[in-house]
Design a protein around this nucleic acid. Structure first.
Length: 492
RNA sequence: GGGCCGUUAGCUCAACUGGCAGAGCAACUGACUCUUAAUCAGUAGGUUCGGGGUUCGAUUCCCUGACGGCUCACCA
């Protein structure tokens, strides 16, 4: 905003005037004895007769959201972290000194109020003020009260304004906090230990994604922001931590979209002596716990579609989903040339010698994924797109893996972990050759991780859940930026 | 990175084929001690995102840049 804006000049004038009265515009030490939310809870249902009998005097604080000036009286609305309450300020009640202050107050200012409750003619619960204190002067105008703040760029860059003005945004982020808290609660009850592993890694691993690179001066070495905690968590399982999780940020140097932010929050958890099938059961349990705790019901709406979390959820192999949901002819599934031709005819971008598993996966993302609105486990992925997964005993080209889809989005990815160090070495070598061929997302060879595997990783299953996307589903948000407080933006 | 769309007062939005840049809210002055999108009377507020071009004249047309949204590609 332009500093010479007329509105700001007006406010600065008031600031000078208030200061010339010897008033501290930013005093400390004011204590409230109740919040707006508590007031509404306790007195919201009482009629005026009951309120008149309660002669309690309360001290409240909040931001002034609206002002209606009647000359010798004011109605204002204040808002604190728990809600909104009207206050009635009469000159004959607060006295001349306090009344001079209210005359100079703007919406956006924080005030402290003392008084008792009553109900106005129109029935609104209102604080009849005995006194008023300015707690913090706002020196910039708030967005308009009726339309709120709509401009998305301002909403993301100045999220605090968005939070002040748009209650639904506030509720989304409060719910996000509760979701994360409830997940921790569930995992805690299941006997998991929360651990923290490096965000800065000398060899980035655990996911096929391009990392951010940085440099440590004292050590004189390159470091990468982690794309996943996976390989460190599995080292811990080698070390005997049998049920662990990490819930924190990952960083991927990829495109930005409504489903992608360069830094995003991921839950990863590992269970020794379990399989990917056990994790499907556990995932269903987790969601039931979340839905019951947060909403008290199992059906929610996402972008107009009802989503029913009642278990069990369908478990469909990737190949079957291509046939049954994507409508792909069975004959094409095993014929790589026919598959590539079909892909091209549908506008799916594939290379000439692209491996069949990768083509199938691209097809899946194109024709099946958007249709998976109800919670669905897709299982048995091609091994070539699963370099850290255990092979199936009965078919070495298929991984013991599942992905969970809800609302047409991938929400979770899990597998029985590859614990054969020799097989893992071969997979790393394959990834290294892809990297040499120019694929920047391919995995790095990680000798240190292989060494850990050589000490013996017990049979283990692990899962990652994209928290931002989960929050999107549970808060009916269209863009990942609406569930991340400060989404990545270009410098202005 | 490509395509499409957008950027006008503090906020939300108008402005026809290129012809004096406007409204509501907010602000300011005044009136009003039960209003609630308060009301009434008045006032002020603009680098029309930046730069260049075409034109007698550009918010409008053209070129270019910045930022944002959607989308495709990449990915989760």
């Amino acid at each position: 905003m332009d500093e010479s804006s007329g509105l700001i000049k007006e406010i600065k004038k008031k600031v000078k005037e208030l200061r010339s009265k010897g008033l501290n515009l930013y005093p400390s030490g004011f204590r409230r004895d109740i919040t707006v939310g508590e007031v509404v809870n306790r007195f919201g249902k009482m009629d005026n007769n009951e309120l008149e009998r309660t002669t309690d005097i309360f001290t409240l604080a909040g931001r002034v959201m609206s002002i209606r000036d009647f000359g010798k009286a004011f109605f204002i609305h204040i808002k604190d972290g728990t809600g909104k309450l009207q206050a009635y300020i009469r000159k004959d009640r607060v006295g001349d000194e306090d009344f001079e202050i209210i005359e100079l107050i703007d919406s956006g200012d924080h005030v402290g109020l003392t008084g008792q409750l009553f109900r106005t003619k129109t029935g609104e619960l209102t604080l009849l003020a005995n006194s008023l204190v300015l707690l913090s002067k706002s020196q910039r105008p708030l967005p308009e009260k009726y339309h709120g703040l709509i401009d998305v760029e301002t909403r993301y860059r100045q999220r605090y304004l968005d939070l002040i003005v748009n209650d639904d945004v506030r509720h989304t982020f409060i719910l996000r906090g509760r979701i994360i808290q409830t997940i921790r609660e569930f995992l805690d009850k299941q006997g998991f230990i929360e651990v923290e592993t490096p965000m800065m890694q000398s060899i980035p691993g655990g996911a096929t994604a391009r990392p951010f690179k940085t440099y440590h001066h004292a050590l004189g070495m390159d470091l990468y922001l982690r794309v996943a905690p996976e390989l460190y968590l599995k080292r811990l399982v080698v070390g005997g931590l049998e049920k662990i999780y990490e819930l924190n940020r990952n960083f991927r140097n990829e495109g930005i979209s409504t489903d992608h932010n360069p830094e995003f929050t991921m839950l990863e958890f590992y269970v020794a002596y379990a399989t990917y099938e056990d994790l499907m059961d556990l995932t269903e349990k987790l969601f039931l716990y979340l839905l019951n705790k947060l909403f008290g019901r199992l059906t929610i709406k996402y972008q107009g579609n009802p989503i029913d979390f009642t278990t069990p959820w369908p478990r469909i192999s990737l190949a079957d989903s291509l046939k049954d949901i994507g409508g792909m002819p069975e004959s094409v599934l095993s014929d790589s040339q026919a598959l590539i031709d079909l892909a091209r005819s549908k506008g799916v971008d594939v290379k000439d010698n692209e491996e069949i598993g990768r083509v199938l996966n691209k097809f899946f993302e194109y024709i099946v994924e958007p249709k998976l609105i109800q919670p669905t486990f897709i299982v048995d992925h091609p091994i070539e797109i699963s370099p850290l997964s255990r092979r199936k005993d009965e078919n070495s080209e298929i991984a013991e893996r599942f992905e969970l889809f809800i609302g047409g989005k991938e929400i979770a990815n899990a597998f029985s972990e590859l614990n054969d160090p020799d097989d893992q070495r071969q997979r790393f070598l394959k990834q290294a050759s892809l990297r040499d061929a120019g694929e920047e997302e391919a995995l790095f060879m990680d000798e240190d991780y292989l060494k850990a595997l050589e000490y013996g990783l017990p049979p283990t299953a692990g899962e990652g859940i994209g928290i931002d996307r989960l929050v999107m589903i549970l808060t009916d948000s269209l863009s990942i930026r609406d569930v991340i407080l400060f989404p990545q933006m270009r410098k202005k």
